[in-house]
Design a protein around this nucleic acid. Structure first.
Length: 425
RNA sequence: CGGGGUAUAGUGUAACGGUAGCACGAGUCCUUUGGGAGGAUUUAGUCUCGGUUCGAAUCCGAGUACCCCGACCA
C-alpha cells in the first residue's frame, strides 16, 4: 500500500480512463482488454507502456517471482542492457539476428541484451575460483529486447519485454541436476501463485544445440501460439517441435493418446552445461585439485507475457477477472451516489480497509451513472467489488460482489472482519 | 522475411470521383442516478509524398504504420 500514491487509489484522480470499445488494430484478447481497461498503452508493435494499474499488476507478479527465486537461493542483480560486441563474438552469437545492434558515434558496435549469458558468465567468473564458491545462483528481472520478425498477440510476443532470468553455476552435473529439479518446483509454485496452476504443464521441448531437451512451462489456452501434445493422465506434454522425435508418445507413460492443445510458453528452463563456460574458459579448482569447467543452467520467465497469459485464461465478456494474487487492488470500492451521506460512509470504509492493510481502488466521486461504474469495475477486474449507496446505507451495509460470481451480499458497514469473511476466495 | 488486409476527429464507423457525416468521448448548462440515462450546445478528422482529373477520403504509384497467416522463435 505504501508504494501506491493517493492519486492511483482514487479513481477520480487516476489519469487513465477506460475505453468502451476495443481499438480496431488490437485483435488479441489480452491487449484489447488491457488497453480498454487502461493497464497498458501500445507505443508501437510489440512495445507497451505499463500504466498505473498495469504496473501494479506487473509488480505483483514480480514480487511473487522474486520471493520464489530468493527461496531457492537466488541473488538478485541488475545487469546492463547495452552490451559490447566483443563478448558476443566470444560465443559466436554476434551474428544472431534476434539481437538489436547499434553503433555509437565512434562506430563501436553494441547489442541490446536479448539474454544475458554473455554478461553474467564473465561476471561470475571474476568471483568464482574454487569448488568452495559453488554452487551459486544469480537472477535478474529486466527488460530484454528481441528483434522478432513478427511481434504479435499483444503482450505475448513483444520486441521489448520484461523477463526474469536465473542463472545457476555448478561444480558437477549431479549438482546441476539437483538444482534444476528445484527450479522446476519453484516454477510450478510461481505459476500456481499467479493463478495459472490449473492450466500450466511441464512440456518437453528442444534443448537447442547444447542439450537434448529443455523444459517449458506451457499454459493451455485457445489462443496460444505453441502447440503441445498433452498426456491427460501424466499431466505432462511434448512440444510439437520434437513430437516426432519422441515417437508421438508421452515421455512418462509412453501412451500414444495425446491431446493436441494450443498453449503459451510462460517459462523455459535449460541445462546449459558448459556451453558458455567453455568459450569464456570459466573454470574452477575442484576438491581433487583439478581445473574443471563450471556447469551452468538458465531459467527464464517472461513477466509481461505472464501478465498477458493471465488475462487469456481469466476473463469473460465484460472484462478481466484478476486472480487475487496479481490483482492491482484487493477491493474496488464504488461510491454509487455522491450525496454527503454516501460519501462519508464510503470514505470511512476506505480508511478502515486501508488501516487493515488492504489495497483499495476507490471510485470516489466520478459523475457517472451506476451502470458505467459497474461496467468499469467489471472491465478492470478487481476480485471484489464493494458498493456503498443510499440503498445499502438504509441497512447500514455495504454490498459485496466477487468479480467471478453473480450473487451480491450485504454486510454491516463497520465490520471489516465480516467483509474479510465474505471475501475468502 | 514471403503472403494477405487495413489506414477518415481521442475512440468506433459512414460518405457514386462533386458540401466530410453519425455515435461515443471531451467541454458548458439543465434534468437524471443500481447496469454504459435524456435534452441543449461546443469541440475535433481524410497517414505521408507524388500522379491522374475541372475536381480525389474515394482512382493510380511509392513510402510509412498497424493487424492477420506463414516462416522464425534460448
Amino acid at each position: 500500500t505504501k508504494i501506491i500514491s493517493k492519486e492511483i487509489m482514487l479513481q477520480s484522480k487516476l489519469f487513465t480512463k477506460t475505453f468502451r470499445e476495443a481499438l480496431k488494430d488490437e485483435k488479441s484478447l489480452n491487449s484489447q482488454l488491457l488497453i480498454r481497461a487502461g493497464f497498458v498503452d501500445k507505443l508501437m508493435a510489440g512495445v507497451y507502456s505499463f500504466l498505473p494499474l498495469g504496473f501494479l499488476v506487473l509488480k505483483k507478479i514480480e514480487k511473487i517471482i522474486r520471493e520464489e527465486m530468493n527461496k531457492i537461493s537466488g541473488q538478485e542483480i541488475f545487469l546492463p542492457t547495452l552490451q559490447p560486441r566483443e563478448k558476443w563474438e566470444i560465443t559466436k552469437r554476434w551474428k544472431i539476428e534476434e539481437m538489436f545492434k547499434l553503433k555509437n558515434h565512434q562506430g563501436k558496435d553494441f547489442g541490446l541484451g536479448w539474454t544475458h549469458e554473455e554478461v553474467i558468465t564473465p561476471l561470475v567468473q571474476k568471483f568464482v575460483k574454487s569448488y568452495k564458491d559453488l554452487p551459486t545462483f544469480a537472477y535478474q528481472i529486466q527488460n530484454k529486447f528481441r528483434d522478432e520478425l513478427r511481434s504479435k498477440s499483444g503482450l505475448l510476443r513483444g520486441i521489448e519485454f520484461l523477463m526474469k532470468d536465473l542463472y545457476s553455476f555448478h561444480a558437477n552435473e549431479q549438482d546441476l541436476d539437483r538444482y534444476y529439479e528445484k527450479v522446476k518446483k519453484a516454477y510450478f509454485t510461481i505459476f500456481q501463485r499467479c493463478g495459472l496452476g490449473d492450466h500450466t504443464f511441464l512440456t518437453l521441448a528442444s534443448g537447442g544445440s547444447f542439450s537434448p531437451y529443455s523444459h517449458e512451462f506451457q499454459t493451455i489456452t485457445p489462443f496460444g501460439e505453441d502447440t503441445i501434445y498433452f498426456c491427460q493422465k501424466c499431466k505432462i506434454a511434448v512440444n510439437k517441435e520434437i513430437i516426432t522425435r519422441e515417437k508421438n508418445q508421452c515421455p512418462n507413460c509412453k501412451s500414444k493418446k495425446l491431446e493436441i492443445k494450443k498453449s503459451i510458453e510462460v517459462g523455459n528452463i535449460f541445462k546449459l552445461q558448459d556451453k558458455f563456460s567453455k568459450p569464456f574458459n570459466f573454470t574452477f579448482i575442484d576438491k581433487d585439485g583439478k581445473r574443471k569447467l563450471v556447469l551452468m543452467g538458465c531459467y527464464g520467465i517472461g513477466l509481461s507475457r505472464l501478465m498477458g497469459t493471465v488475462i487469456e485464461v481469466h476473463h469473460d465478456k465484460k472484462g478481466i477477472i484478476w486472480p487475487k494474487s496479481v490483482a492491482p487492488f484487493d477491493f474496488h470500492l464504488i461510491q454509487l451516489e455522491n450525496s454527503k451521506k454516501v460519501k462519508i460512509a464510503a470514505e470511512k470504509l476506505h480508511q478502515n480497509l486501508q488501516k487493515n492493510n488492504y489495497e483499495v481502488l476507490y471510485d470516489d466521486r466520478r459523475e457517472k451513472t451506476a451502470g458505467e461504474k459497474f461496467a468499469d469495475a467489471d472491465l478492470i477486474g478487481i476480485p471484489v467489488r464493494l458498493v456503498v449507496s443510499e440503498r445499502t446505507l438504509e441497512k447500514m451495509s455495504v454490498e459485496i460482489k466477487k468479480r467471478n460470481e453473480k450473487e451480491v451480499k450485504l454486510t454491516k458497514l463497520n465490520k471489516i472482519k465480516d467483509i474479510e469473511q465474505d471475501i475468502k476466495l
